[in-house]
Amino acid sequence: MSLKIVVLAKQVPDTRNVGKDAMKEDGTVNRAALSAIFNPEDLNALEQALRLKNTHQGSTVTLLTMGPVRAAEIIREGLYRGADGGYLLTDRAFAGADTLATSYALACAIRKIGDVDIIICGRQAIDGDTAQVGPQVAEKLSWSQITYSEEILNVNDGKIKVKRRLERGIEVVETHLPTVVTVNSSAPECRPRNARLIQKYKYAKTPTERKGETGIYADLLDSRPYLNLVEWGVNDVNCEVQKVGLSGSPTKVKAIENVVFQVKESKSISDSDADIEDLIKELISNHTIG
């Protein structure tokens, strides 16, 4: 059976490689100092989707992302790896969304896309680490959910079988489609970009990105429909405006602080035998060890 698969992906600041200039003096995040990347676990999710596409003839994999115009970059990243297309949800009204408002907007877009069999996404994004959007999208659609997944084992006769990786073991579960699957970083890494696909899709653009393009480039986009990425705003996906963005977010940020730790007066020790033996003797005599 052919499957219509949507991968939810997020462009995130690379919080794993935070340099000294990542925070501004006033304690806010200096986004300019952090590179924007494809959320790592969403790449694991994309790989699971592409594997299903390989084994189920006629299946399609499309990416759905919400973010500013530059988030179209991760749709292209998905296309370079074998996805068939992508949707960018972008609108000022979406700004300031917490996980609930985000999942509402994504669920509206999924309904608009229509007839989706499986939604696959990363378990969590590294900028928030909340792991909430996947289950909340599932709830909004009244679909089942399979979180903490490591491998989609098979899809047959409208049923999906998935191996989950929990804190202390594994669980294999089965459910009916449609469903939402969230994928852990323990799942196989995503395949690299494919050179042929980079050539094919490097000029893929959203309507906003191609605005003002004329001449040969505009002709190219017109003659090759697959280079035109879909861009949707609030009105395109039938969202109720008060349910998205800041107004649709029950949680509010009251305060943001820099992390300050109690600095101790440390004793410096060299790596010489004498110094280390002295330390060990001290630890033994004050019953810290032994």
């Binding site: 925070m23 900028d127 928030g128 305060a255 602080e257």
Partner: peptide, 21 residues
């Protein structure tokens, strides 16, 4: 309820509230 949690990979600490819900 002040819900205090790290954000941005632990580089800041945010206090989150739910005033109305």
């Amino acid at each position: 309820l002040y819900q205090i949690r790290p954000a941005f990979g632990g580089n800041i600490v945010a206090t989150i509230i739910n005033p109305d819900c």
